[in-house]
Every structure is written in structure tokens, then in C-alpha cells.
């Protein structure tokens, strides 16, 4: 299972800023290992962020996104103590969801 995401969600003047650092190899499928064999692609394809069960962002990623992807976005509303949950799915069908409280 993949490592937890680090999520920060901070509400300020009616806008909540969310920053997510995922832990993922984001292998492109183009690199070769030391013996010359291709390393199979393994990367996050989809990501959904929810604020109290309401979707506030859905994203699709390609292999061009950096290793351990970083993502920051803002949405209107959100108060201290609200829940922000982020879920990703990768091309091997692995998935992970992490949740934080807005601070």
C-alpha cells in the first residue's frame, strides 16, 4: 500500500486553500533499468478532492506529472473543522484516500 498523502487545508477569509503532497513513483514507462529492460508505467491517473462529501476538484494526471505529485488549489467556503478528503487511483488500480480537517 502506498504511503499516506500529506494534506494541508487552511481556511482564510471564506476561501480554503488545499495543498496535497502525494507519495507515488509516477513511473512514465519510458525509462529503462540498468539491464536495459523497460520499467513499466505506474502513475496516478485520477484524483478527486471532496469538501464534506461535495466534490471540489477532479483531476486527471498523465505520466508527465512529477514523482510524488504536488497539487494546490482553492475553493470558496470551508470552515475550521470541515473535512477535506483526497482520493487517487493509479493505472494499476491501486487507490488511496486521506482526510484532514480544515485548519
Amino acid at each position: 500500500m502506498a504511503s499516506p498523502m500529506r494534506i494541508r487545508a487552511a481556511a482564510k477569509e471564506g476561501v480554503t486553500e488545499v495543498r496535497v503532497l502525494m507519495s507515488h513513483v509516477m513511473e512514465t514507462g519510458q525509462r529503462k533499468d540498468s539491464s536495459g529492460a523497460l520499467i513499466p508505467a505506474h502513475f496516478i491517473t485520477e484524483l478527486t478532492a471532496k469538501h464534506n462529501d461535495k466534490v471540489v476538484l477532479s483531476a486527471e494526471f498523465g505520466p508527465s506529472v512529477s514523482t510524488n505529485p504536488y497539487l494546490a488549489f482553492k475553493f470558496n467556503g470551508g470552515a475550521k473543522g470541515d473535512k477535506v478528503a483526497v482520493t487517487w487511483v493509479d493505472n494499476k488500480g491501486e487507490t488511496r484516500t486521506d482526510e484532514v480537517q480544515v485548519s
Binding site: M26, T28, S66, Y70, A72
Partner: peptide
């Protein structure tokens, strides 16, 4: 309700 303001990191 979501701002048109996103940041990420990519490979080039």
C-alpha cells in the same frame, strides 16, 4: 465554487 487557480509539478 472552486477557484481557477491550480498548481502542480511536472516533468520536462
Amino acid at each position: 465554487g472552486t477557484a481557477a487557480d491550480v498548481q502542480t509539478r511536472v516533468k520536462m
